[in-house]
Design a protein around this nucleic acid. Structure first.
Length: 310
DNA sequence: AGCTCTTCCTGAAAGC
DNA sequence: TGCTTTCAGGAAGAGC
């Protein structure tokens, strides 16, 4: 799943091979993940690629102005979100076309920038330069750029669960399920704890853990769980260093306890029950912890659904 | 404000 | 073995 480190890895790869080249044509397959496919296909050919940036989990490919009518005289940004299974790869146009490849940007040197996405949870749009500020404004801070004090301020007083806040792209941009779990493990914070219940020291620890985890993951060129590959088609290696994500039932690297998985904020959440103390439940002994839903057991809940609509 | 549920989609894994 | 069901998840929107 492409989160900040994976997107950063793709961006660094694209930055090495795209700038300076022109897009000469666009071919489209399925387009239901593109905001305005017609505009995309019409406005890109003839433009030269400038820089490539990462904005949270979005990839921003800058396109220079081109000759022609007035609307072509402004810079554009091709914005791509990889969703769950999106791949953005540069290769010779003669390479075989993998299944689920839906967008082809033909380059001026015989190569293509291709977008493939089996589940099509990704998103693609074109924005004029003037709208980029507003686009950034809708998102939270970059986790690797936000100062510790600002991070604390953003979370202080929030009663939502810390996991939900880490995943909220309006608070911080770029963190997803893997790195939220890994960071919380490193900071020894249970995912269901309320941000408001965390001391300044704990929040500083979390700020540091997030940086460590994200920077380590970028060094390993991201985590390849199912689909992720970089711009050259190569998988990352950080999945080998996961401490909790995908390790349910295995031993905690710190204390040996079995890693558990519960649903928090609607997301599968992995944690060590010993290192990451659960939130205090209101009444002791109730056995129920607020905000933690048990996983559905196999065989449970069968019937229902299929309420035939006639 | 914040939580849960639903929707989108497909391949893998589990279930029978 | 082989068909069927469930699940995973990023983000947005509905409803409570």
């Amino acid at each position: 799943m492409p989160e900040l480190p994976e997107v950063e890895t793709v961006v660094r790869g694209l930055r090495r091979v795209l700038p300076g080249h022109a897009i000469v044509g666009v071919r489209l397959g399925k387009t239901d993940f593109i905001d305005d496919p017609v505009a995309l296909a019409e406005s890109l050919p003839g433009r030269r690629i400038g820089g490539v940036q990462r904005v949270g989990k979005f990839i921003d490919v800058e396109l220079d102005p081109s000759e022609g009518p007035a609307e072509r005289a402004v810079p554009l940004h091709l914005i791509v979100h990889l969703g769950m299974t999106g791949r953005l790869v540069v290769c010779p146009a003669s390479d075989p076309i993998p299944l689920h490849t839906h967008v082809f940007f033909e380059l001026d040197d015989g190569r293509e920038l291709r977008y493939a996405d089996s589940r099509r949870f990704g998103r693609m749009l074109v924005l004029p330069d003037a709208m980029i500020r507003a686009f950034h404004g809708k998102l939270g801070e970059e986790p690797l750029e936000i100062p510790a004090a600002e991070f604390r301020k953003r979370l202080a007083g929030r009663h939502a669960r810390i996991k939900a806040l880490l995943l909220d792209q309006h608070v911080l941009r770029g963190i997803g399920n893997i790195y939220a779990d890994e960071s919380l493990w490193k900071a020894r914070i249970h995912p269901a704890r309320s941000a408001a219940g965390l001391s300044a020291q704990r929040l500083d620890g979390l700020w540091r853990a997030i940086r460590d985890v994200l920077q380590g993951a970028i060094r390993s060129r991201g985590s390849s769980i199912s689909d992720f590959v970089d711009a050259a088609g190569k998988p990352g290696e950080y999945q080998l260093r996961h401490r909790v994500y995908g390790r349910e039932g295995e031993a905690c690297h710190r204390c040996g306890s079995r890693i558990r998985r519960v649903i928090v904020a609607g997301r599968s959440s992995h944690f060590c029950p010993r290192c990451q103390a659960p939130p205090r439940s209101g009444r002791k002994g109730s056995g129920k912890r607020p905000g933690v839903r048990a996983l559905k057991m196999k065989g449970q809940h069968h019937a229902r659904r299929r309420a035939t609509r006639s």
